[in-house]
């Protein structure tokens, strides 16, 4: 290559300059991909193999001498653990409460943002703000508002004589679950709203015009035009928010620490506790794999549903 270049340097034809050989272009491409692929490979291929190895061996930090192969023993441990049924239930409850709440909030706000009036402009800027904050910050803010003793919510409710005692928002197991949902809607709702707004804007105005000419009321329009045309974005938000809710960790860590009485201890919380409280890396990895597998099923189901949707 080098001697050819030297020989033809002066009299290089335009055609040659225009098309650097496919080899050179490919080398350039590989060089540009290399850093990205290296980082991602180092932090995805190796970790999976390593986690798989851990999940099949005894890995207890309090017993550092013993790392014998236990087969699926760790997985059996997880299935027989005191927390599995309860934490899966708590996770399902959290998903089933927070995802519909986020979606309804998102849809209502999106409908509002889609109206032509000055308020929509103000709201559009404001609504994105909670989403930009670290989940840790959202958790602290809500924990402070919902504080049993000094929280402003209880203070207002009592001053308005709506209640005459302090509501134990975060120390009652059922209420703590509701409190988490509130924080989740506050933090995740904006995303749903902005995304559904884009879906609404994609609906051509003529569609509504024709329905109005036919004398359809707003409910009929919403029910028979808006909702069906919003199916794909709604589905996307549904799945995205399901995944986010299913692996919620930061909010739980800050607001409840899994309590009271493990009411808000979701599966991701126990994946953390197995490793960092029970120091059982084997069981922790097995649980992490089970969570990953469950999520994979959800994601694949979602991709399938989307494909069906786009073929309709």
């Amino acid at each position: 290559m080098a001697n050819v270049t030297a020989a033809t340097e002066a009299g290089r034809t335009p055609a040659l300059r225009r098309r650097p050989g496919p080899g050179r272009e490919a080398i350039y491409a590989y060089l540009t991909l290399l850093p990205v692929l290296l980082v991602v490979a180092a932090f995805s291929l190796y970790p999976i193999l390593y986690a798989a190895y851990l999940s099949l061996h005894k890995e207890l930090l309090t017993d550092p001498g013993d790392h014998h192969f236990v087969g699926f023993g760790n997985y059996v441990d997880v299935f027989h653990s005191f927390y599995l049924v309860d934490s899966v239930t708590s996770t399902l409850v959290f998903v089933l409460m927070s995802v519909p709440a986020v979606m309804v909030f998102g849809l209502l706000v999106a409908l509002l943002l889609n109206q032509a009036f000055a308020g929509a402009g103000i709201l559009r800027v404001a609504v994105l703000l909670p989403w930009a904050l670290p989940p840790v910050v959202s958790g602290i803010i809500w924990r402070w508002i919902l504080n049993d003793d000094y929280g402003v919510l209880n203070s207002i409710l009592r001053q308005l004589s709506i209640v005459h005692y302090a509501i134990p928002w975060l120390s009652n197991p059922q209420l703590a679950r509701v409190a988490l949902v509130f924080a989740q809607v506050w933090h995740e709702g904006p995303l749903a709203a902005i995304f559904l707004l884009a879906g609404l804007r994609a609906i051509p105005a003529e569609t509504y015009g024709a329905a109005r000419v036919d004398g359809a009321g707003w409910w009929a329009i919403f029910r028979h035009i808006t909702l069906p045309l919003l199916r794909a974005p709604l589905l996307l938000v549904l799945i995205y928010e399901t995944i986010v809710a299913a692996v919620t960790f930061d909010l739980v860590y800050i607001m409840t620490g899994g309590g009271p009485a493990n009411a808000t201890a979701l599966v991701s919380w126990f994946a953390y506790t197995e490793v960092f409280k029970f120091v059982n890396l084997g069981n922790g990895s097995a649980l992490a794999f089970l969570i990953a597998a469950a999520l994979l099923v959800i994601i694949l189901g979602y991709l399938r549903a989307l494909r069906v949707e786009s073929n309709r």
């Binding site: 991602v40 991701s268 994946a271 992490a288 969570i291 994601i299």
Partner: peptide, 12 residues
């Protein structure tokens, strides 16, 4: 690679 939930690769 993004299909891996963060919690699953925390220990590695």
């Amino acid at each position: 690679s993004r299909l891996l939930p963060a919690i699953a690769v925390a220990i590695p």
